[in-house]
Amino acid sequence: MVAPRVTVATVAAAAGVSRQTVSNTLNCPQVVRPDTRDRVLAAVEQLDYHPSLAARQLKTGRSRVFGYGLRTTRASSPDPIGDRFIHALASAAQAHGYRILLFATVDDLDEIAHYRKLRLQADLDGFAVTNTHRDDPRGNWLSKSSTPYVTFGRAWSDAASPHPWVDVDGAAGVALAVGHLWELGHRRIGFLGWPQGSGVGDDRFHGWRDALLARGVQPGEASPWHRACENATDAATAAARDLLSAVTAVVCVSDIVALGAMTARSELGLSTSIVGFDDSPVAHAIGLTSIAQPLTRVADAVLERLIHPTMPNALIEPSLTRRSSTSPVQSGG
């Protein structure tokens, strides 16, 4: 004998609530009281209720699926936070009854081509976009095509279309690193960054410059305490060899760059304190003090703005994770 089909009405009766409350719990859980929501979810689990996605899409006009372009990386310059952000974003989506559709891309234009195809073929509700940069064409294309999207990263160009974004305050993170080194007695604190114009890198450079200015030190881009290189360990090692002789401590724009700086420090037999940015698995493995990006909070905020696009933009504070790569300045430093 075939068991009777479980419906919204069945769940409502078991939980002692209305059908609308069941619908709200499954589609807009934030508007339901926690005790009521728990009772409905318990009934859903007990009855093994599975709402019809097709019926829901017909009713709401939404697929409850967002797209995310997964970019290829070079072996010399891996993405230290990409995997963790994707996992956090997928977890946030699942908690709200959504899913993330991943697709592979190689560059901005390839990603735009996939946006065009997926809008027609997959009927996605929108896209999460990462690795924003100056003159980024993706946001302008999505805005002109009236495609909902939220970026992890600010619009770094004045010509960029206004859109919802979430970002980590890179300048504030570097200021934390400078403050940490200052407390350890360091006064000659360098910065190993990326070439000017990257947006993210410029923001972190400004954090270093402004933190030293606030302490009566006047560095600049031409300062012997500042060097720039590509985000690759070999390039960072070469740049750090010149920088380390002028300072007692260095703040690096990324953990990848910091790894190169630590290689140069070992080669030169120095004890320079080094701070990275990203708090990646590499930082954990080599004892690197690093600025941690709160990726779970970022992913939650991105997902919330995909669902509710009128929410204000969010700039999230990072934190400092102290490890053995930083220590008090030696006498005479």
Rank of each mutant, 00 (worst) to 15 (best):
T36D: 07
P164F: 11
G287K: 12
T310A: 15
D38Y: 03
A12I: 01
D242Y: 06
Y49V: 06
N231D: 01
R138W: 04
H163Q: 14
D234H: 06
L315M: 11
G333Q: 14
V44A: 02
A88Q: 09
G173T: 05
D123T: 00
V6E: 10
C28G: 04
R322G: 08
A238H: 09
D167E: 15
H284L: 10
T36N: 11
A43T: 08
G333F: 04
A171N: 01
T60A: 03
T233I: 08
S52G: 00
H163V: 10
R188E: 13
P34Q: 08
A258Y: 03
D110A: 04
A55D: 00
W208Q: 14
H186V: 12
V106E: 00
G197S: 13
T73R: 11
D167G: 14
R322L: 15
L58T: 05
A228G: 05
R134F: 02
I86P: 01
P309V: 13
R215W: 02
P148Q: 12
A113Q: 12
L89A: 13
G170I: 12
N24C: 07
G173W: 06
A232D: 12
A175D: 13
S146P: 03
A104Y: 01
S325N: 13
T72G: 06
Q20S: 07
D35L: 09
L47E: 07
Q218R: 12
R19N: 07
R116D: 15
L320R: 13
P80F: 02
D242Q: 15
R204M: 14
P224A: 11
Q57Y: 02
D242P: 09
T132N: 05
A301V: 07
L259W: 03
R56D: 01
A88P: 08
V22N: 00
E183G: 15
F152G: 00
V217K: 03
P80V: 05
D83W: 02
E230T: 07
L109A: 02
T296V: 05
H180T: 12
A92F: 00
T296S: 05
H308K: 09
L270P: 09
S223C: 04
G179Q: 13
R265P: 15
T233D: 00
D125L: 05
P312F: 06
F277T: 10
A238S: 14
W208L: 10
R138C: 03
P312H: 10
A14Q: 12
V40M: 05
A228R: 15
L89S: 08
G16F: 08
V302A: 04
R37K: 13
Q46G: 14
I112L: 04
R84V: 04
A283E: 03
M1Y: 07
C28I: 11
G220E: 14
A211T: 06
G185E: 12
D234A: 09
P294M: 08
S319T: 15
A15V: 13
A246Y: 07
A258E: 08
V65R: 02
A299F: 03
L102E: 00
L295E: 10
M311Y: 03
G179A: 14
T296G: 06
D279P: 11
M262A: 09
A211E: 02
S273R: 14
V17C: 01
Q30V: 04
P224H: 11
L109T: 02
V257Y: 04
V40Q: 05
G333T: 06
V106Y: 01
S77E: 01
Y49N: 12
L315N: 13
A104M: 07
R99K: 11
M311K: 13
A171Y: 05
A92V: 02
